[in-house]
Design a protein around this nucleic acid. Structure first.
Lengths: 252, 252
DNA sequence: TGCCATGATTGGTATATACCAATCTGACAT
DNA sequence: ATGTCAGATTGGTATATACCAATCATGGCA
């Protein structure tokens, strides 16, 4: 009648994340061989491999056949502090950045959200919507889902004035390090259009976001919905081959 | 002795990619159960699972415990700061990439285009539109404007089969090195919708592009117009791109 | 000293087996 | 008709075992 069943390989993932966090393992270090880890943890080698596959997909380790498994350099590029600061960016351009909280509640997440955040389906989250304005004109709706266990009492803070990630950093010592994100074009629903002062069906830019902290824990799952006529994303590119996760290869 | 050793699970991946490409399996279809596939292919269930894991990571299938494994809706994914090799990327994902030239003419550009390309207002350009398809379904309309002085006789080449930048490179020794790009959400016009097989007003992603060669000369000015429901731009933090990363700007 | 065969090490692939967990189906009771 | 529950179906996790492929370290030879 225990709580949620956490698979063994995920427990091993957590253990290794801790070791990385504690500094027992630092970038460049080589892990023990899979067979040795299997012995240490008292599990089958296959189970260790499942755990390593998770860590590899998150970019925390690198595996080289015949050589070993190594802790990778943390991918902090375009880190939270630079990337997510809507307010400073807008003010630097000489506009007035505004903010309004549309909703804030503590709820049980949908199974999908729970899965993405890697929390048990009955653990709660803080979910809220925030409207962002430039020169008093609505520009985007932000949606956040934060695991309540990580940020207990989050609703005590004023999300109108402060950055969400800044609160997580200073109040909870959670440092958002990187995010998986994607952009797509969508049509505004009725309610979204109303919030943004646009017409239903008008084009908008939807950014999906799953943010991780330095230990690779998912800490925020949400979206940014931009009015299509009020935002442009600059994506300058060089021809240099860019090794992104979207590249397809035999190796995971 | 024998050629390169392709693991069995990758051969199975290839087989399934073919079936998807051939239309034997279409989005929404349910695959046979893993145990049945194992029997069909004459391999262990674990091997089938390895193949399915690859397909899942590529976003081609979706697995639901207790329910089955399903072909997902094809969506082209690309990094926001990559703009080359449409064809290769699509084929790597196991889809058939198609191409159709909608127009090709040598004309005097508008003053705006002439300014962007830094050519005299009466110098001519090659202007053309190309429709790109994935599995025979329209995905984007490309628009190009190339200074005619740089690529004389460009209309002699078959833009249906060859990459524009590849032609510029091999036939004219012009090496596209860099592009200033931006992304925005727009609504499809009547004619655009017709080409893309969508409804007028449907959301789309407009990418504006000004490409430069290694000497910093503007060599191409154009746009890519993506159907909003058939493309997703991945903007992970994993791609370096700090200096020219994604920025938000207030639209004029 | 320098090179390179050779074996040990390490991750990669594959089989066989078993049981768990989520979902769906259909018979049955109301 | 409608709701409910038991069993079947299907993907998920885990063990034990074996061998292959890439890499590395060692020691002998020129």
């Amino acid at each position: 009648m225990s709580g949620p069943v956490i698979p063994v390989y995920m427990q091993i993932v957590d253990t290794m994340l801790e070791r990385i966090e504690q500094g027992e393992l630092t970038p460049g270090d080589r892990l023990a061989p899979e067979r040795a880890l299997a012995g240490d943890f008292g599990v089958n080698r296959r189970t260790i491999r499942q755990a390593l596959e998770v860590l590899e997909r998150r970019g925390l380790i690198e595996r080289r056949q015949g050589s070993g498994t190594f802790i990778s350099e943390p991918r902090m590029e375009r880190g939270a502090s630079e990337f997510f600061h809507f307010t400073e960016r807008i003010r630097q351009r000489g506009f007035a950045a505004g903010s309004e909280v549309l909703s804030l509640e503590r709820v049980v997440p949908s199974p999908f959200v729970a899965t993405e955040l890697e929390i048990s389906p009955d653990a709660e989250i803080y979910r809220f919507h925030r409207l962002r304005t430039i020169s008093s004109r609505p520009v985007l709706i932000e949606t956040f889902a934060l695991p309540a266990d990580l940020v207990p009492g989050f609703d005590a803070f004023d999300v109108t004035e402060r950055s969400v990630y800044e609160i997580m950093r200073t109040e909870y010592d959670i440092h958002v390090a990187y995010a998986r994100q994607s952009l797509e074009a969508v049509a505004l629903s009725q309610i979204e259009a109303q919030w943004l002062g646009a017409s239903p069906g008008a084009p908008a830019m939807l950014e999906r976001r799953l943010a991780f902290d330095e230990q690779g824990r998912p800490v925020d799952f949400g979206t940014d919905l931009y009015r299509g006529d009020r935002v442009r994303f600059v994506t300058d590119a060089a021809t240099v081959a860019v090794p992104t996760g979207t590249e397809v290869s035999a190796a995971p």
